[in-house]
Design a protein around this nucleic acid. Structure first.
Lengths: 209, 209
DNA sequence: CAATTTGAACTGACTGGTCAGTGCAAAAAC
DNA sequence: GTTTTTGCACTGACCAGTCAGTTCAAATTG
């Protein structure tokens, strides 16, 4: 009897090629931007012929869009997992936010190029992949918004907070601080950076000691 | 070659042309990115012949670099002014940070395209104008760092805060929240957005009412 | 077992188009 | 009469996307 034959999603070989192309594309586009990165460069970095890029992806833009979706999927899964685990283990929503900050830092630590690219392309308008970008942005922020909403509902947060704006601000805080960390103080430990952001989150900036 | 600005012979007419080119370039590059924007487009949008672009700027990259410097000069002047005015009028350093948040929002409200472009290009590496970018980034963050340092020195802030990281986080918070505001909730008033960010800054997120 | 067939995956030279930057003579502005 | 702008043709490099041909592992056959 036939085992579960050709899995929907392509052969293992093909999947490996696509993965190599993602990895090549993400660093090049993070460094240079989408338009300045050529398909030839991506193929060369991936150790693959140019035609292979077009065998696996309909176009340069499509490769990029799928890369975005792939990366954001990883990020949101990680954020969601951190928040859920914290709450499940009896933590408060502030604890959950803190756990998400850490999860965000861990992600950025592991995939700095993707983060760079995400920030750089996120607010572009008039681009072909605009709708993808919208979805992909909302996905990440929505996880934070969810925790904020829960906190407001259970009285842990003030009802006066502006959920979407606060979520965006928190995401921005982590993104920019982390990019700065990676770009200008790469020696710092993740715990160190996390501690600094925790302090800011919990308003423990003011006041001596 | 005397390409530097503030040339003795810099006529008012020439300055006006350069200004038109800045304005055309900033919106186009914000929308499309540097590489995807052509010199022909910039010239057309500015209502000027292509040759004029090259009469006024050595190259497309140089035009962009001078544009960056010009815009960041405006931003930092505004931030510095806000902080100094607050302190001069007897405000605390927290008040100064708050005033800088507002000044940042006012700037972004007035020059959204520049802000977009700034964020998009700020963490690019391997680009011709890398050194310019470094200067330009440090300029904006340094103003915030200055206020944090003063606050630590006079005991208003904990000595444990990580000044560079906290400054970057604050800048990120404002940038991302503001871009979100402009992109997705443009109806909101500046005061509204400012209030939400103030609350976050002062740790008044937790706790009922 | 080989030997052969099949087809998905991959290759890289090639094409058609785009674009930064040049050159220059003439007009306009100052 | 000097500076600045115009208009436009031109070049050379670069690049996204194509396509006819190749590879190779697994399936089929004898």
């Amino acid at each position: 009897m036939e085992s579960s034959s050709t899995t929907p999603g392509g052969s293992a070989r093909r999947e490996a090629t696509r993965q190599k192309l993602y990895e090549a594309a993400v660093t090049l586009i993070a460094e240079q931007g989408f338009s300045a990165t050529t398909v030839d460069e991506i193929a060369e970095r991936a150790g693959v012929a140019k035609g292979t890029v077009y065998y696996n992806f309909a176009s340069k833009s499509v490769l990029f869009e799928e890369l975005l979706r792939h990366g954001v999927g990883l990020l949101t899964a990680s954020l969601r997992e951190a928040a859920e685990r914290t709450v499940r283990e009896g933590g408060t929503r502030v604890d959950a936010l803190d756990a998400m900050i850490r999860a965000g830092l861990v992600f950025i630590d592991r995939y700095p190029a993707f983060t760079q690219l995400y920030v750089a392309e996120l607010w572009r308008t008039n681009r072909a992949w605009n709708s993808t970008l919208l979805v992909v942005r909302q996905q990440a922020v929505a996880v934070v918004e969810g925790v904020l909403h829960e906190g407001v509902a259970n009285g842990e947060f003030s009802e006066e907070i502006d959920v979407p704006l606060t979520a965006a601000a928190l995401v921005g805080m982590v993104l920019v601080a982390a990019l700065d960390w990676k770009s200008f103080q790469p020696g710092r430990s993740l715990d160190d950076v996390h501690a600094a952001l925790s302090r800011l989150l919990q308003g423990r900036v003011s006041g001596r000691r």
